[in-house]
Amino acid sequence: MGDRHAVTLLTRAGCGLCIVALDQLRSICADFGIEPGTVDVDEAAATDPGLRAEYGDRLPVVLLDGREHSYFDVDETRLRADLNR
Rank of each mutant, 00 (worst) to 15 (best):
I28Q: 05
F72V: 15
I19Q: 04
L25C: 01
E43H: 12
D23Y: 00
L9E: 11
E35T: 15
Q24P: 00
T11S: 14
Y55C: 03
T38S: 12
D23H: 07
Q24Y: 03
R58K: 14
L59A: 03
R78H: 11
E35L: 14
E43P: 04
V74Y: 06
D40K: 05
V74I: 13
D75K: 00
E54M: 07
A30P: 01
P60H: 06
G37I: 07
V41K: 01
D75T: 02
L22Q: 10
F32E: 04
H5I: 07
R4T: 07
G37L: 12
L25K: 00
T11R: 08
A6S: 15
Y55V: 10
F32W: 11
D75G: 01
T38Q: 14
D57E: 11
P60K: 02
R52K: 13
I34S: 06
R12K: 15
D3E: 12
R52Q: 11
F32I: 05
A53H: 14
C15T: 09
D3P: 13
L25F: 02
A45Q: 03
L79K: 02
E43K: 12
A81L: 07
A81V: 07
D3G: 11
T77F: 07
P49N: 04
D57T: 10
V20W: 00
A21T: 05
A44N: 08
E43W: 08
V39T: 14
L22W: 08
G14A: 06
V20Y: 01
C15K: 05
Y71E: 07
V39I: 15
R67N: 09
R4Q: 13
A44E: 14
P49A: 00
P36T: 06
R12P: 09
V41Y: 03
G37K: 11
T8F: 05
A81G: 06
D23N: 05
S27M: 09
A44S: 11
M1C: 12
V62S: 02
L59E: 01
Y71S: 13
N84I: 04
Y71M: 09
F72W: 15
T8E: 11
G66Y: 03
A44Y: 03
S70F: 09
V39S: 02
C15W: 04
R85F: 07
C18D: 05
L83Q: 04
G14C: 10
A21Y: 00
A46E: 14
L22V: 04
N84H: 09
P60A: 06
Y55G: 01
G16Q: 13
A45C: 07
L51T: 05
R80Y: 09
V7Q: 02
C29W: 06
D57M: 13
D40N: 15
V74E: 04
A45R: 09
D65H: 03
R67D: 12
L22H: 10
L22R: 10
